Amino acid sequence: MLLACVSVAEAEMVERPGRWIGRVNERERLFSWPGSGFALRFQGRRLELRLQTDGENSLVAQIDGERRRIDLAPGARSYTLFDGAAGRHDVRLFKRTEGDVGQVGFLGAETDGHFLPAQAPERRVLVIGDSISAGYGIEGAGPDCPFSPGTQDQTQTYAALAAARLEAETTTLAASGRGLVRNYSGARTGTMLALMDRALPGEARPTAPAPGPFDLVLVHLGTNDFSGEDKPEGFEKAYVELLQTLRQRYPEAPIYALLGPMLGPEPFTEASRAIEGAVASRRGAGDEAVRFLAFPPPPSSFGCDWHPGLAANREMADRLVARLKADLGW
Results as ranks from 00 to 15, higher is better:
Arg92Val: 11
Gly228Val: 10
Pro201Val: 05
Met13Asn: 15
Asp64Ser: 02
Leu93Pro: 10
Arg123Asn: 07
Pro117Leu: 06
Thr191Met: 03
Lys231Pro: 03
Cys145Ile: 15
Asp100Cys: 03
Thr155Asn: 12
Glu315Ala: 14
Asp318Phe: 00
Pro17Val: 02
Arg27Ser: 02
Leu81Arg: 02
Pro299Lys: 05
Arg77Lys: 13
Arg188Asp: 10
Pro213Trp: 05
Glu203Ser: 12
Pro265Asn: 04
Leu200Gly: 09
Thr157Trp: 01
His307Gln: 06
Thr155Tyr: 13
Pro34Gly: 01
Leu107Lys: 03
Phe235Ile: 07
Ser36Arg: 10
Thr191Gln: 03
Met13His: 15
Ala39Trp: 04
Gly202Thr: 12
Arg188Ile: 09
Phe226Pro: 03
Gly140Arg: 07
Arg27Gly: 03
Ala285Asn: 15
Val60Thr: 15
Arg77Trp: 05
Asp153Thr: 06
Ala326Leu: 11
Ala257Leu: 07
Pro251Ala: 01
Ala9Glu: 12
Lys95Ala: 04
Ile70His: 10
Arg319Trp: 02
Ile63Cys: 05
Ala163Asp: 07
Glu66His: 14
Arg19Trp: 12
Ala61Ile: 04
Leu59Arg: 04
Gly22Trp: 15
Thr157Gly: 04
Phe295Lys: 00
Asn313Thr: 06
Arg188Val: 13
Gly44Trp: 07
Gly135Glu: 03
Thr80Cys: 12
Gly75Pro: 06
Ser133Val: 04
Ser185Trp: 07
Pro143Tyr: 04
Gly44Tyr: 09
Ser227Gly: 13
Ala257Glu: 10
Ile63Tyr: 01
Val321Cys: 08
Phe268Trp: 15
Arg247Ile: 09
Cys304Arg: 09
Gly177Asn: 04
Ala134Asn: 00
Val181Gly: 09
Gly137Val: 02
Ala141Ser: 11
Leu30Glu: 13
Glu252Cys: 00
Asp153Asn: 14
Tyr250Val: 00
Arg205Ile: 00
Gly202Pro: 11
Gly150Cys: 01
Gln244His: 13
Pro117Ala: 00
Arg282Gln: 15
Ser131Pro: 06
Glu139Lys: 14
Leu116Thr: 08
Pro206Met: 07
Gln248Pro: 04
Leu47His: 13
Ala134Asp: 02
Pro34Lys: 05
Ser7Pro: 14
Ala162Gln: 01
Leu116Met: 12
Thr223Pro: 06
Gly135His: 06
Gly309Gln: 03
Glu26Ser: 13
Ala199Cys: 14
Ser58Glu: 14
Ala285Cys: 03
Ala280Lys: 14
Leu310Met: 11
Ala253Thr: 08
Gln244Gly: 13
Leu166His: 01
Pro261Asp: 04
Arg41Phe: 11
Ser36Pro: 05
Arg68His: 11
Lys325Ala: 08
Val60Met: 14
Arg291Cys: 05
Arg96Val: 10
Ala238Asp: 12
Gly264His: 12
Glu229Gln: 12
Pro74Trp: 07
